[in-house]
Amino acid sequence: MAREEELAKYVDEAERRVAAEGTLDLEAFLAEAPDELRDELHKLISMILVLRPKRPGGPPSAPRAPLDDLPGYDIYRRLAPGSKGDAYLAWSEALERWVTLHVLPAPEGSGESRLTERVRDLERVAQFDHANVVPVLDVGQFGELIYVATEPIDGETLSETVSRMRDQRGGPGRSARAVAAGASGPLTFQDLARIVRTIALIVEVARTRGLRLEGLNPGDVCLDGSGKPWLQSLAFRLATPPPAGAYPPSDGAREDVQQIGLFLYELLTLRPAIETARDAGANHLTGPRQIDRSIPKGLESIAQRACAPEPAGRQASAAVLAEELDHFAKRVPPRGLFRGLRSWLRASPR
């Protein structure tokens, strides 16, 4: 009886590990067991490994172990990953409310001081207050992880929308209208232009507060139920002054414009610009309309200028880009007006 109980204990433990880790190092596990049980356990656990169905993607999406002990937070479930790390819905004991908990990997070249410095930077970025920026509620450090708790937004990130539409269309680049039928209802190209315009305006305000974009991608923007875009403040970093004597002098405005341009490009083509560039050869972006003919020329032209390799070829600032997008959204083409008029006349009933 005692032997059976002992066997059951080891079998339960083996199962627990298989369930948690998706696999089991059988030899290492058996080494932990008493000699007289090893043969029997080997056969029984081999049987469990045959019985256990393999799940795609390994064990269920449980939070990473270190988070289970994060003081003050009760992790509830994993959310769609953000662009900067994993995200979870969690209960904050201190705030007594639900929060979205972003968990960021340790910065490169990490060391305690680098980690502390990054947390301090994030605390300053978190002070950026804007009607379209997700409010940050807490920033902290836990082991080698950095966490940022933000207001939870009830909606869908643009990366979820893009990826779902890409899957549904069976490949990249089908109609960017596309981005249509997201969680918050159909999006037209005008809606798309309005969203990116809002982001450009936020970036312009952020620049006046000493912040610069740090990689903008669709995972950083969430549309709530009313269609209002919310930008994660994690998309920003503190601006660093340009090296003394740098020429041409730059305040980074055109670099921000390029990031917004690449973001717009991905929303239009449903493909990350970096993928397109890699397929087409370095330093070359395929024209959005070559990927999808339904993309309006006006919007293509705005995106291409913003993505221009040379800073001088881009819009001078995010504010200028916002103005161009505003023109487009209001159906006032900034250029090619007569060509547009001819098309309209041809398409109109006589």
Partner: peptide, 9 residues
């Protein structure tokens, strides 16, 4: 069928 079709070894 479904269980044994998976293999960890």
């Amino acid at each position: 069928h479904q269980l044994a079709s998976s293999h960890t070894t």
